[in-house]
């Protein structure tokens, strides 16, 4: 009962976020980068729903494009994490042995770092920008997916029916593709949603630190850090993008929570 309510709220919020992403892709009310000197720090109005920033740019439009940007980066990051994480986790979990031992030690070494820190290192090496950020966070997300998949593969591998299939002479490749991978669906679904939750958080954090898309392109995190300079006079400029970040994370975490629990039951 209560769980369903959480699920529904999560679904509604996530749909809203997706809608914002869609609007961000199709058309924003104003050009998010167009400056208008006369509209500097304009207050909230029907023309400018969230007001304007220090350059007179429409904050609502910038938020919409920021959401689009965050969603795009998060989707790429989660995809990289899931794709490589699944390959790594399946191979190490299925075959075990020294390869597993070494890769898992490496995995531990990487997991010892919070993803934001790891991404900072990669950006330190290759410079900042949208694609560097995707690569950086994507790499940082691989280990946790690899670990989840590996655990699950270990569990499935030891099930009786896999042993039976092996007795019939099925090849490793066939066992992995036909019998193991489809069983990862449920685990992957909830970890993808939780992955989105973490990716949004990491992306916003990185762009807050100035390591995301280059200005003047809008991103939620950068809007926050820019607005922070005017926190005394125009606190709302920081609050709107911040609340949008919170809403995005909230939606994914509600969905992730309830999906996870459904799988357990």
């Amino acid at each position: 009962m209560k769980k369903d309510k959480k699920f529904v709220i999560g679904l509604v919020i996530t749909s809203l976020v997706l809608l914002m992403t869609l609007i961000g892709i199709i058309k924003t009310p104003y050009d998010p980068c167009a400056m208008d000197g006369s509209m500097k720090f304009a207050h909230i109005s029907f023309k400018h729903l969230f007001g304007c920033d220090q350059f007179g740019r429409d904050i609502f439009s910038r938020v919409l494009v920021g959401v689009r940007e965050t969603m795009f980066i998060s989707a790429c990051v989660v995809f990289i994490g899931v794709f490589f994480g699944t390959i790594l986790g399946t191979v190490t979990g299925y075959f075990g042995g020294w390869l597993d031992e070494i890769l898992m030690r490496l995995n531990d070494a990487v997991l010892a770092f919070p993803s934001v820190l790891l991404a900072l290192v990669v950006i330190g090496l290759y410079g900042s920008g949208r694609y560097q950020l995707i690569a950086a966070l994507g790499i940082a997300f691989i280990p946790s997916f690899a670990r989840i998949v590996r655990g699950e593969v270990l569990k499935i591998r030891n099930l009786d029916y896999i042993q039976a299939v092996r007795l019939y002479g099925a090849s490793h490749f066939r066992i992995i593709v036909v019998h193991i991978l489809p069983n990862l669906k449920t685990v992957l679904l909830s970890s993808i949603i939780i992955g989105f939750n973490n990716a949004v958080l990491a992306e916003a954090g990185m762009s807050y630190l100035g390591m995301g898309v280059s200005p003047p392109a809008p991103s939620l995190g950068r809007m926050l850090s820019e607005a922070q300079a005017y926190i005394f006079s125009n606190p709302l400029n920081a609050i709107f993008p911040g609340i949008v970040i919170v809403i995005m994370i909230l939606g994914f975490s509600l969905l992730g929570d309830t999906l996870g629990k459904r799988n357990d039951a």
Partner: peptide
């Protein structure tokens, strides 16, 4: 319980840099 769970859920979703800005606004400004 419902109150606490809801508040918790929302607070969990606030990134530390945003809560930092809010704290600055409330307690600093």
């Amino acid at each position: 319980d419902i109150f606490f769970s809801s508040v918790n859920q929302v607070i969990m979703a606030i990134p530390s840099f945003f809560s930092g800005i809010i704290l600055t606004l409330i307690f600093g400004v």
